[in-house]
């Protein structure tokens, strides 16, 4: 059961600013989905290994050679909403 306070913490972790209206709106919706998920409690998964990767792949590497994927500084900065000189510009830290 997610409380309004839980939702605030989740919003903080996920960096999603939530208005009071949104908190009211989301809390029951998220809880109804979680209620549905709780059906998994009926399944006995004792001793079952989790499947992170559906294929049994391992040891995939690249060689330590400069790739062709690099882009120019101009391309790198081309989508920046804010930039200064040759940098991306972020807000103040504190």
């Amino acid at each position: 059961m997610i409380t309004k306070k839980d939702l605030e913490h989740i919003g903080w972790l996920a960096r999603l600013e939530l208005s009071d209206d949104e908190k009211e709106k989301y809390t029951p919706k998220l809880n109804s989905v979680l209620d549905y998920f709780n059906e998994l409690d009926e399944v006995d998964t004792e001793g079952v290994e989790p499947t992170y990767h559906v294929l049994q792949l391992y040891n995939v590497f690249r060689d330590d050679e400069p790739g062709i994927g690099s882009i120019t500084q101009e391309e790198a900065l081309s989508n920046a909403p804010k930039k200064q000189d040759e940098f991306f510009k972020a807000p103040r830290m504190m």
């Binding site: 960096r15 999603l16 600013e17 807000p91 103040r92 830290m93």
Partner: peptide, 13 residues
Amino acid sequence: DSDWHTTFSQVRA
């Protein structure tokens, strides 16, 4: 822009 926490949260919201 505000402080970075706030800006991130507002951009995403």
